[in-house]
Measured scan of single mutants.
Amino acid sequence: MWEAGIQHIELEKGSKGLGFSILDYQDPIDPASTVIIIRSLVPGGIAEKDGRLLPGDRLMFVNDVNLENSSLEEAVEALKGAPSGTVRIGVAKPLP
Rank of each mutant, 00 (worst) to 15 (best):
Y25E: 14
G19F: 01
F20A: 02
L59Y: 00
I89M: 09
W2H: 11
L41M: 14
N69E: 06
I89E: 01
S15G: 14
P83H: 14
G14M: 13
P28L: 10
E68D: 08
V76R: 15
P31H: 08
V91P: 00
S40C: 15
R39V: 03
E10M: 08
S40T: 10
D24S: 05
V76M: 13
G5I: 13
S70W: 06
Y25V: 08
P28V: 09
P96F: 03
A75G: 15
R58W: 01
G14F: 09
G17H: 04
W2M: 14
L11P: 00
G56Q: 04
L18V: 09
L11H: 00
F61P: 00
D57F: 13
L59H: 00
I29L: 06
D57H: 10
G45R: 02
G45T: 03
I38R: 00
K16P: 07
Q26D: 12
L54N: 08
Q7T: 10
D27V: 12
I46F: 09
L23F: 10
K49Q: 11
G17A: 05
S71R: 05
E74L: 14
I29F: 06
G5V: 09
K80P: 00
I22G: 00
L59F: 02
M1S: 05
P55S: 15
N66M: 11
P96Q: 15
L67K: 00
I6C: 09
S71M: 07
E12A: 08
G81Q: 12
D27C: 10
A92L: 13
A82F: 04
D30G: 14
I37A: 14
E77T: 09
L72R: 13
F61W: 15
I9G: 01
H8V: 08
A82N: 03
P31R: 08
E48R: 03
P43Q: 10
P55M: 09
L18N: 01
S15H: 05
M60A: 07
L95A: 10
D30E: 09
S84N: 09
S71G: 11
E48S: 07
G17N: 08
G85D: 04
I6R: 06
D50Y: 02
D30Q: 11
E3M: 09
P55E: 14
G90N: 02
N66H: 12
G44Q: 09
D27W: 04
G81W: 08
R39C: 05
S21H: 13
K80A: 11
I29A: 14
D27S: 11
I46E: 12
L67N: 00
Y25P: 08
E77H: 11
E74K: 03
S15Y: 06
I22Y: 02
I89F: 15
S84W: 12
I6N: 06
G85W: 01
G14Q: 12
I46S: 13
R88I: 07
G17P: 11
E73T: 12
P96D: 08
V87S: 03
S21Q: 11
A47E: 02
R39L: 04
L41Q: 01
A4N: 12
S71N: 10
H8E: 06
I46P: 11
I38G: 01
V87G: 02
A32E: 08
E74S: 13
K80V: 09
V87F: 03
E48I: 04
Q26L: 07
S40P: 01
R58D: 00
Y25I: 06
L95T: 10
K16Y: 05
H8F: 13
Q26C: 07
M60L: 12
D27E: 13
L23G: 10
G17I: 02
G19M: 03
E77P: 03
N66A: 08
V87M: 06
S84T: 09
L54S: 10
L11W: 02
M60C: 05
L53R: 01
R58P: 01
H8Y: 15
A92M: 14
L18C: 04
L72F: 14
I38V: 14
E77K: 06
D64G: 06
V76K: 15
V91H: 08
N69T: 14
T86S: 12
G5E: 15
P28Q: 11
L53Q: 01
I9Y: 11
V87H: 02
R88Y: 13
P43S: 10
I46A: 10
S15F: 07
E68I: 14
A78D: 02
F20W: 01
A47H: 00
N63C: 03
I37D: 01
F61Y: 09
P43F: 06
E12C: 11
I36A: 03
E3I: 11
P83S: 12
K16G: 05
A32Y: 14
V87K: 00
E68Y: 10
Y25M: 14
A78I: 10
G14R: 09
A82C: 08
Q7M: 08
A4Y: 11
E68F: 06
P28M: 07
A32W: 06
K13Q: 14
R39D: 15
A75T: 05
I38W: 01
S21R: 09
L18T: 03
A4I: 15
A92R: 10
F61L: 12
E73A: 13
I37Q: 15
K49C: 06
G5L: 07
D24N: 10
P96V: 04
A92F: 07
N63K: 01
I37L: 06
D64R: 08
S71V: 12
L59C: 02
L11K: 01
G44K: 08
I22E: 03
N69M: 07
E12P: 07
P83K: 08
T34W: 07
P96H: 04
E48T: 04
G85R: 04
L59V: 09
A92K: 14
T34K: 14
F20L: 06
P55F: 02
K13F: 12
A47L: 02
L54Y: 13
I37H: 09
V62H: 00
K13M: 13
L79D: 00
V62R: 00
R52S: 04
E77S: 08
Q7W: 05
G56M: 10
L59E: 00
E73I: 08
G45E: 15
M60K: 07
A4V: 13
S21M: 08
I37N: 08
A78S: 10
K80C: 13
L79W: 02
P43C: 07
N63G: 14
S84C: 13
F61R: 09
G85A: 03
T34L: 10
E12V: 15
G45C: 03
S21I: 05
K13E: 04
S33Q: 12
L41G: 00
D27P: 10
I9R: 01
P43G: 06
S21L: 05
V35Y: 14
G5D: 09
N69F: 12
P55L: 06
G56R: 05
L59I: 05
T34P: 14
L72P: 07
L23C: 15
P31A: 10
G17M: 03
D50A: 05
W2N: 15
I37Y: 09
P43M: 08
S33N: 11
L79T: 04
S70I: 07
H8M: 13
Q26E: 13
L23S: 15
S71D: 14
G5F: 13
I22F: 05
K93P: 05
I29P: 13
L59W: 01
G17Y: 02
V76H: 13
S71K: 10
S40V: 03
D30R: 08
A78E: 06
L23V: 12
M1A: 04
L79N: 00
L11Y: 06
T34F: 08
Q7E: 15
E12N: 15
E73F: 09
I38Q: 01
G51A: 12
N66L: 06
R88F: 05
A75M: 02
L95D: 08
F20V: 07
A4Q: 14
K80Y: 07
K16A: 08
H8C: 12
L11T: 02
A32G: 10
A4E: 06
K16F: 06
G5Y: 11
P94M: 15
P83M: 11
P96R: 09
P96T: 05
R58F: 01
L72H: 09
V35T: 14
V42L: 10
P55R: 11
A92G: 10
V62Y: 03
L54E: 15
E74C: 06
S70L: 07
V91W: 03
G85I: 02
F61A: 11
